[in-house]
């Protein structure tokens, strides 16, 4: 009912009713601000639960989700908005709710999305000042490779393959090929 009304003004696509109290839909980037204001001021969706960014690397977009909640009807709207991954920019909505600024700081830090005009956007929440890697929540950020290139092993430290090490400790006389077979499920398919 309400969605029908919204559809008259906005380009609402990919509507999905997940459960009784939760509906997801997608709107284009440029209609997002108007959508949030309409829902907040005219339909009582006054509580913003969170903003989260999902890296859809296969589609080349970041999918931002704004979760709004209505305390009168106990209904939530999850509003998606796809933005280009290469040119990651989104309008800032810090003037609508105070906590939006904090969420936008987190999104800039973790996904590298720029929110023009958002207050204190450059201040990192958790990464320290010396962080020079890419935004860590992006899918193409390889944590293992980064830590191998950035940090170094303590001197005198030896790494063992756990399977190999246990075999040598427990069954030193057992032939290697036989033990491998047993460890891989006894040759059963």
């Amino acid at each position: 009912m309400m969605l029908e009304k919204l559809k008259q003004t906005f380009t609402v696509t990919e509507v999905k009713e997940q459960k009784k109290n939760l509906t997801f839909f997608t709107v284009p980037k440029e209609q997002m601000e108007m959508m949030l204001i309409t829902l907040r001021d005219h339909h009582d969706y006054k509580h913003l639960s969170f903003i989260v960014g999902i890296d859809m690397i296969e589609d080349g977009v970041f999918k931002l989700t704004y979760m709004l909640y209505n305390y009168e009807t106990n209904h939530s709207f999850g509003i998606h908005c796809n933005i280009d991954r290469e040119k990651a920019e989104m309008d800032s909505f810090h003037h609508l709710w105070e906590q939006v600024g904090t969420y936008q700081r987190e999104l800039r830090e973790m996904l590298g999305i720029n929110f023009e005009g958002s207050p204190r956007l450059e201040e990192n929440l958790s990464l320290d000042e010396g962080w020079d890697g890419p935004p860590p929540m992006r899918r193409d950020f390889d944590t293992k490779e980064y830590s191998n290139n950035t940090y170094f092993q303590r001197e005198g430290r030896v790494n063992y393959d756990p399977r190999e090490y246990m075999r040598e400790q427990l069954y030193p006389t057992f032939p290697k090929t036989e033990s491998d077979k047993l460890l891989n499920g006894g040759g059963k398919k």
Binding site: S49, V52, D55, M67, E98, Q99, G101, T102, Y103
Partner: peptide
């Protein structure tokens, strides 16, 4: 694919 934990401290502790 993505798990986000929404805690009330995100708003209470900062802004």
């Amino acid at each position: 694919r993505r798990v986000h934990a929404r805690g009330p401290s995100m708003t209470h502790a900062i802004c």
